[in-house]
Amino acid sequence: MDVTALIDAVSQTKDKADELSCQEIIDRLSDALARFTTSAENQHFAEEYRPSGNYTRLLLNSPQDAFQVVLVFWGPGKGSPIHDHDDTIGAVSALTGETKEIKYVTTGQVGECVELAEAGEFTIAPGRITPILPEDDKQLHLMVNEKTHWAATVHVYLTAIHRYQMYLAAPGGSFRTAETSLWFDECGVGTRMPTSVRS
């Protein structure tokens, strides 16, 4: 599956979202994402791309779309803080390398801070999908590339994310939230990806 087909699959799922269950949405996104991330042509593009820093985030589709398909490059040892996804439904897979995901759940409130507990760990690799679900705190996670080489992940958000919450460590083991804008190093990068191979 090439990038155009992936973007089309997400767009079609977005158009039918009101008719689909949450699981049906995840299944459709996961199927498209698995085919995209196991494509040798797409992997070659990621391997040849030269990120601008130790963490680079590229928007593959148009910024005018109501959804987002995002390619993220993680340098060795680089990771994200714990964060949510602004209640969107989505899915994540790796295009190259592996990243570790740790999901969290909220277990309590301490003043303006929250208490979190780990709710599971998952290795994201090409073809392996982790869902992003709004219910039951399943949106909270962090990701980290623990390897000594670069990794690239593809994130599909059915509703475009513009602002989200990071969860930063506070005294006493709790976490304070910080609203953050989602930014991209480049937009519309999908036009430079392989488009001749479809599956």
Rank of each mutant, 00 (worst) to 15 (best):
Q23L: 12
Q23M: 11
E24V: 08
E24T: 10
I25F: 04
I25D: 00
I26A: 06
D27R: 07
R28G: 03
R28E: 04
R28A: 07
L29Q: 04
A32Y: 00
L33A: 01
L33W: 00
R35A: 03
R35L: 04
F36I: 01
F36A: 02
F36L: 01
T37Q: 02
T37E: 00
S39I: 02
S39R: 03
A40Y: 12
A40T: 13
A40V: 13
E41M: 10
E41V: 09
N42E: 11
Q43C: 08
Q43K: 13
H44S: 13
F45G: 07
E47F: 09
E47K: 14
E47H: 12
E48A: 14
R50K: 15
P51A: 10
S52E: 15
Y55L: 13
Y55P: 08
Y55G: 10
R57P: 05
R57Y: 08
L58F: 10
L58P: 04
L59D: 04
L59M: 13
L60G: 04
L60R: 04
S62P: 07
P63A: 13
P63S: 13
Q64A: 15
Q64N: 15
D65P: 08
A66H: 14
Q68S: 15
V69G: 01
V69T: 09
V69Q: 03
V70N: 04
V72S: 08
V72R: 03
F73P: 03
W74F: 08
G75A: 14
P76W: 05
G77H: 11
K78R: 15
K78Q: 15
K78P: 07
G79A: 05
P81S: 07
P81R: 05
P81F: 04
H83W: 05
H83P: 02
D86A: 15
D86Y: 06
D87A: 14
D87K: 14
D87G: 10
A91R: 02
V92C: 08
V92H: 01
S93I: 01
A94G: 06
A94F: 03
T96C: 09
G97R: 00
G97P: 00
G97L: 01
T99M: 09
E101M: 10
E101L: 10
E101K: 06
K103L: 11
K103E: 13
Y104I: 01
Y104S: 01
V105G: 12
V105N: 13
T107Q: 10
T107D: 09
G108N: 07
G108P: 04
Q109P: 06
V110L: 12
V110G: 08
V110R: 09
G111H: 01
G111D: 02
E112A: 10
E112S: 09
C113H: 12
V114L: 11
V114F: 06
E115K: 12
A117V: 06
A117M: 11
A117T: 09
A117I: 06
E118T: 12
A119C: 13
A119D: 15
G120Q: 08
E121C: 12
T123W: 09
T123R: 12
I124D: 01
A125E: 06
A125V: 07
P126G: 05
P126W: 03
P126F: 04
P126L: 05
P126R: 04
P126S: 08
G127H: 01
G127P: 02
R128Y: 11
R128S: 11
I129N: 01
T130E: 12
P131H: 07
L133F: 08
L133I: 15
L133S: 10
P134A: 03
P134N: 03
